[in-house]
Design a protein around this nucleic acid. Structure first.
Lengths: 336, 336
DNA sequence: TTGTAGGCGTTATCAT
DNA sequence: ATGATAACGCCTACAA
């Protein structure tokens, strides 16, 4: 910042207060004076310092969005939703991914900046380090896709249990599934856990077994799932067999491997995914999956956060978003 | 911010300067004193105010990344690269999309915050409003995928002309293209212009015509391209006919439409795209395209910007990234 | 090694 | 309607 408010004031022959009033649109400035000030601002190319203003007002109007990773459509859509909402509400959005988070790296560098009014964050594993970080966050925060008993905070979650149950009901009830093979991400991953738990639950209720050897923990990646499937898919194929992949990427990998191995989807093997990202419409056959409102998750978390910044001590809110089953061809029951 | 440095100072029985020294890691503090201060900080859960610190030091260590849009892998990857580099360099990254930019909306809201040390920005059209905005940016900025004669600034661009020439040479020389159909985004879009210009140039050099009716301006979207192709693809198909879509999305749309219309790719019609996004590997047949180093673009723009913040008056840098042709099956010359 | 004091560029509270 | 002045929370000479 070179030119400051006092320069403008001098140039326009007024006091700093008047300049401040003009800038902040206070209507009690005589039009004539206002004009002089505006001209001075223009001429000097004056740009108010957000730092100074923030310091005075006690807030930066900047919020953070911290995601486990920035790779892929899932996070990208969350960012898009968050950006739109933040813009709407007049906040700036500081994005950051958590690279390594552990006992020693108690959180994203971002937190230490003391420059944010609050943060929305999504963590893929609830380690002790993270819990600790969260429990003494210096600013309000909202948790995305997670819930932490103990620390008071708002959260935006999706009803995974319900969604998975619906999906399993469809697969079992409408498509005749008799055996389900589960493909998860890392075993400690929160989504993996939620989806696996719900899956097992649903199978139990239907009296179907979930054999331990039919549970695989991978990494949410297309290629990893492809490689696995390329190896073992013959042992999966069979009447009533279904793969439930915890995200669309892995489901797509399985479908690709099947096609290469001559296993017909859905005839020899049903495949369903999760998320309804773009790829779900590009597989052959197209993927039956669960639509997660990604952009909405981002938008809601920002909305909740900014709301909280207004009302610091309202009671914690918890927004539950409902995913919805999207039936396509890969489950063999598109028309039922 | 509730608790401030003076609270810590009082609690530790030292002066504010000492607290400040501890926080900033100045080594001239007696270990004993340092320990007392650190304990006080811990106990009080003191968090320095980035606002105050920034005000004093004259910088926020925050940079902006402004993109035309936040939709799709292209921007997402740029963000990912930028985030990694910013973290590396100790800067925070404020993301924003330009929603409507015009004469009246002279730029992203972000610019007005006066809270950023600099910005990296990518604009998809160079309107007068944008030019004006850029020419009196109050902070250093680097332009992504664009170059603006006049205003001094760094820029990161990709050598589209060269890449397109290579691609055309391949298509004409190795695949026997005799007729090229060009699918662009909006006519005013900078990438559309660059790619179209280079395409026409390359064709001219090869003595091939580019019929006006073979030039379409769409919107970079899969669906739009699909719809167009679904209508007119029979008139495209024919020996030596090639579609050059200005991005992979549109190319994929054409391939899908072809498959539906019974037009064989690449036998009846060659298709090539641009970007090498994920979708290029998911089409059937896989797409020949040009690999754009998206994450690198993001990283380089951040690097250049932060470098500039260090050396305000070094001469403008211009980093040129080389895309590379990726030959797959959709051009019919995978093995040549 | 530590403390004192001035100032960074605003906004807000009083006066005038 | 406008102006003077005290914060805001921190850094940094300079002094001790």
């Amino acid at each position: 910042m070179r030119v400051s408010m006092s320069d403008v004031a001098r140039h326009a022959n007024v006091s700093m207060s008047t300049v401040s009033r003009v800038i902040n649109g206070l209507e009690i400035v005589k039009p004539e004076t206002r004009k002089r000030v505006e001209e001075a601002i223009e001429q000097l190319r004056y740009q108010p310092s957000g730092l100074a203003r923030g310091l005075m007002r006690g807030r930066s109007e900047l919020i953070g969005l911290v995601l486990p990773d920035l790779h892929g459509e899932f996070y990208s859509e969350i960012i898009r939703g968050a950006d739109a909402e933040a813009r709407e509400l007049g906040y700036g959005l500081v994005i950051s991914s958590i690279h390594k988070v552990g006992e020693d790296a108690p959180g994203p560098a971002i937190q230490h900046r003391g420059l944010l009014d609050g943060m929305a964050l999504m963590v893929s594993e609830l380690t002790d380090g993270i819990r600790r970080t969260l429990s003494d966050m210096p600013v309000p925060f909202v948790l995305l896709d997670n819930d932490l008993p103990g620390a008071p905070h708002d959260s935006v979650i999706i009803d995974q249990r319900h969604a998975v149950r619906k999906l399993m009901q469809h697969v079992i009830g409408n498509c005749g599934a008799r055996r389900v093979i589960f493909l998860g991400g890392a075993e400690s991953n929160v989504d993996t856990r939620a989806r696996f738990g719900a899956c097992r639950e649903a199978l139990e209720q239907s009296g179907l077994p979930l054999a331990p050897e039919d549970v695989y923990y991978l990494d949410f990646d297309y290629r990893t799932a492809f490689n696995l499937a390329a190896r073992v898919i013959p042992s999966w194929a069979g009447s009533g067999a279904f793969v439930f992949a915890a995200n669309d990427e892995m489901a797509a990998g399985v479908i690709a491997a099947a096609s290469q191995a001559g296993v017909r989807i859905p005839d020899d093997l049903g495949v369903v995914g999760f998320d309804d990202t773009r790829i779900a419409q590009l597989t052959h056959p197209a993927l039956t999956t669960v639509r997660v409102p990604m952009a909405l998750m981002g938008a809601e978390s920002v909305r909740l956060l900014c709301q909280r910044l207004q009302q610091r001590d309202a009671k914690p809110a918890r927004v539950v978003l409902q995913p919805e089953v999207v039936v396509r061809a890969s489950c063999g029951a598109a028309n039922k």
